[in-house]
Write a protein that binds this DNA or RNA. Structure first.
Length: 420
RNA sequence: GUGGGUGUAGCUCAGCAUGGUUAGAGCGCCAGGUUGUGGCCCUGGAGGCCGUGGGUUCGAGUCCCAUCACUCACCCCA
């Protein structure tokens, strides 16, 4: 085999495409119900856009971006996430002048140069939504409720919602400073990674997987204690609304998101089926992102889910509707002399919106029947040589073996009746 | 980027610790037989440079090294 798909990428074969379509359909339907409109942005943007939005210090920017120079010398990057491009488009087309809020959804491939693993690829698909132009805690909740609805529409029952507030540029620095100091006093008890984190990115101290570190950090004061009054109220309101909607959640004071643009609400939906790549989706509020990207002060909130992970989790929980229902029509023919009649009937049926297939390999009638059976065709139409003069064909229902003789014109109506 | 496991037909895997003539099974695919014309059963066939490249050896799918890919954990997140 000469060529292989590049590392961290995958082909989607026909067997899987039904599953993808299932997930996509549910997503689009829900977007319609919630009044989110679709936006499609390029898969690559100026590198600077991502640096600006995700933050210079974020892992995504520091080590995971696919960056390249095009032939004109432009510095470009494949998008590692969807929000930045949407924000750019929002500004470029002055959507802030439209009636607010602006509610958008997107779906497409994202790219991160990371070490592949189950549920983690270099090209992966995200579906996401964004709401621009409102700070109302109800809009945070709308995004979370949307996500919860989406998962339950797919059939998930036991997903965990973790939620936290990461504060704002007013209150977060104080928290960070205290956290850093706290870590410094306990430095000897922390793992090597955490010692580094204490200096570079104290927030990350909170989600170390190491039990002993967790034990130590448990005694640091949680961020809730530092939230300024507006952040505190916002968070409380969000939680209150979640309760009102009967959405169960767990306040995880260790939840911090990897992209720097988040403010206030941060949340993740976790699956217990998935091992270490267990976040099916997540999101949060980003009230300063638009301004930070050179626009007016427009608040926003959004989320994204990972399609491959959803598919993995659905697979594990066996939630795909097992549909191998026979459907469609196979047009079998006894002799290749009958091309003209065959085509006439083939296109007659297709024009009448039936799914129809015929044989192109000159196979025996028996082989054609077998093919039809294996491929779950509900009906087989058999054109016999002798029937030609009579203008008749045989129509067989493969489910119960019933077979009738019909003229061409009567077939569409007959099939329609049968399918009901 | 770090560490562990794996890599044999389209798919799921056996064979490898004790190297030895044409590398196996099931499913799938193709053809034929028996059912008028599928499903069950029977027969036959196609399909593998044993991930790739080196090395050890008279001889390597089997041993050694490297490399690539997958996988699990770290990391990070979706």
């Amino acid at each position: 085999m000469a060529f292989k798909a590049p590392r961290g990428t995958r082909d989607m074969l026909p067997l899987e495409s039904d599953k993808w379509n299932f997930v996509e359909r549910k997503f689009r339907e829900l977007c319609y119900n919630y009044n989110f409109a679709e936006i499609r942005t390029p898969v690559f943007e100026e590198t600077e856009l991502f640096v600006r939005s995700a933050g210079e210090e974020s892992d995504v920017v520091k080590k995971e971006m696919y960056i390249f120079k095009d032939r004109g010398g432009r510095e470009l990057a494949l998008r590692p996430e969807g929000t930045a491009g949407v924000v750019r488009a929002y500004l470029e087309h002055s959507l802030h002048n439209n009636a607010q809020p602006v509610k958008l959804f997107y779906y497409g491939p994202m790219f991160r140069y990371d070490r592949p693993q189950a549920g983690r690829q270099r090209q992966f698909y995200q579906m996401g939504i964004e709401i621009f132009g409102t700070k109302d805690p109800a809009s945070d909740v709308e995004v979370i409720k949307f996500t919860a609805d989406f998962f339950s529409k797919l059939g998930f029952k036991d997903l965990k919602l973790h939620i936290n507030s990461v504060g704002c540029p007013e209150c977060r620095p104080l928290f960070q400073k205290d956290l850093e100091e706290f870590a410094r006093t306990k430095i000897s008890l922390l793992c090597g990674d955490c010692r580094k984190r204490a200096l570079n990115n104290p927030l990350r101290l909170l989600d170390c997987k190491n039990d002993s570190c967790r034990e130590v950090m448990k005694d640091s004061s949680p961020i809730n204690a530092y939230l300024c009054s507006s952040c505190g109220t916002h968070f409380e309101d969000v939680l209150k609304l979640l309760k009102a909607l009967n959405i169960s959640f767990y306040v995880d004071s260790g939840l911090v998101r990897g992209l720097d643009y988040y403010t206030n609400t941060a949340f993740e939906f976790l699956s217990c089926q998935l091992g270490s790549q267990n976040a099916l989706g997540g999101g949060g509020r980003y009230d300063n992102l638009v301004e930070h990207c050179g626009g007016p002060q427009v608040p926003g909130v959004g989320m994204a889910v990972g399609v491959e992970r959803i598919l993995l989790a659905l697979e594990k929980e066996e939630l795909f509707p097992v549909k191998d229902q026979p459907e469609g029509v196979f047009l079998a023919v006894e002799s290749t002399d009958l091309w003209e009649e065959r085509f006439n009937l083939l296109y007659l049926l297709r024009d009448n919106d039936f799914r129809v297939e015929t044989d192109y390999l000159n196979r025996s009638l028996k082989a054609q029947m077998k093919f039809a059976n294996r491929n779950s065709f509900r009906f087989v139409i058999i054109m016999g040589v002798e029937d030609k003069s009579k203008g008749i064909v045989k129509l067989r229902d493969m489910v119960n073996g019933e077979q009738v003789e019909l003229s061409f014109e009567k077939i569409p109506a007959f099939l329609r009746k049968k399918i009901e």
